[in-house]
Computed example of a mutant assay.
Amino acid sequence: MLFAILLPGISMIFRGHIFKGLVCGILHLTLIGWIPAAIWAVASYREDLAEERHRETMRVLARQGRA
């Protein structure tokens, strides 16, 4: 998460959000835009984690339904 705060655009690109990462990187280039870019990157990171937890929950529930 520290990477998302320090280099928000690059962290988004590494997680597969190419267009968002480019926009976030451009926003990051301005001094005032760095704070919103960092907040956006952290929020996106947490959203990706929540989505992965949701997928894992759905996999477990699907396995239990077959058993």
Rank of each mutant, 00 (worst) to 15 (best):
W34F: 00
G33V: 02
Y45S: 14
I13V: 09
L31W: 05
E56K: 06
S11G: 06
H54I: 15
A37R: 05
A38N: 10
F3A: 15
G65V: 05
L22W: 12
A62H: 04
I39N: 10
W40F: 13
K20S: 08
G33M: 02
I32P: 00
K20L: 08
W40Y: 03
Y45G: 10
P36G: 03
L22E: 11
A41C: 09
R55Q: 04
M58E: 15
R55I: 00
E52S: 05
T57R: 09
E52L: 00
I5G: 12
S11Y: 07
V42T: 01
G25F: 14
L6D: 02
M1N: 13
A4H: 13
R15G: 07
I35P: 04
V23G: 14
R59T: 05
R46S: 01
I13F: 06
V60C: 02
R55F: 00
F19W: 12
H28T: 15
L7P: 03
L22N: 13
I32F: 09
R66Y: 11
I13D: 05
T57A: 09
S11T: 06
D48T: 11
F3P: 04
S11N: 14
V60R: 15
W34G: 00
I13P: 06
M58W: 07
A50H: 12
I18W: 14
I26C: 06
M1D: 11
D48R: 04
L2R: 12
T30S: 09
I13G: 09
I32T: 10
A43W: 13
I39A: 11
E51T: 04
R63H: 03
S11A: 15
H54D: 08
L27V: 08
C24G: 05
R15K: 07
